[in-house]
Amino acid sequence: MEIVKIRMQVATAGGSTVPVTTLGIARQLGFRGLYRGTAATLLRDVPFSLLFFPLQALLAQKAQWALNGSREKPSTLCVLAGSTVAGMVAAASVTPADVIKTRLQSSSQPTPAYSGVVDCAKRIMSTEGPRAFFKGTVPRCLTMAPLFGIALMMYDMQQKILGW
């Protein structure tokens, strides 16, 4: 669905008058084409989770200790704070993988613009330099930080309400 979403966004941005549908994109790309960028998606999402969850737990506990000197289970506010900061750090850290994934998936040419993750990374580095890997970092952080902060805060609240 990620590649379908990107294709729809790119097609709309190009001012095309031809309606772009999920089924149309699936037919155009074929089964293999729908999975273009999967390795890059995993390169982004796995490290994000490896960074986010331990950091969130640590920061929520540190916030709890800083606010009231206790080592009890973090308050909902501390969970929100820890999750938001951890979301920002993790999102910024994996932005290079997100840039590669987006480049791989956004090409609307029948022949892919890149042969894979390594080719894409090499070409970005050689043509645009290392800064290109961090394009969109601020908007990504401003999206991911509150998204994960609110999600984990809501989960924490549900746990408390349900007595888990």
Score class of each variant (00 low, 15 high):
P139W: 01
F148S: 08
G82W: 03
E128W: 13
V85G: 06
Y155C: 08
Q56D: 10
V20H: 04
I3L: 12
V99N: 00
P139E: 03
L104W: 01
K62N: 05
S49E: 05
M154V: 15
V94W: 00
K5H: 12
S106Y: 02
D98I: 00
W164F: 12
Q9D: 06
V94Q: 01
Q9G: 05
M1H: 09
E128L: 14
P96T: 01
S108I: 09
M157P: 06
K122Y: 15
A151Q: 12
Q109H: 14
M125E: 07
F148Y: 15
A92L: 03
A97C: 10
A121S: 08
A81M: 11
Q61C: 05
Y155N: 11
E128R: 11
R36C: 08
T76M: 13
K135P: 04
L58G: 03
A13S: 13
M157L: 14
L58K: 02
L42M: 07
K135E: 09
A91F: 02
S83C: 05
K101S: 12
P74W: 08
G116A: 12
K122N: 15
A86T: 09
S126G: 13
M125V: 07
Q158L: 14
G163A: 09
Q28K: 09
Q105F: 03
I3P: 02
D119Y: 03
D119A: 05
A63P: 08
I150E: 09
V79F: 08
Q159R: 13
A113P: 08
V117I: 09
I25H: 04
T76G: 12
F52H: 11
A151H: 10
Q105I: 03
C120H: 02
S16P: 11
G15D: 12
G87T: 04
L50D: 08
P110F: 04
A81D: 10
Q105L: 04
A40T: 00
A86M: 11
S49D: 04
G149S: 10
S83P: 05
C78Q: 11
A66V: 11
M144H: 01
G149W: 06
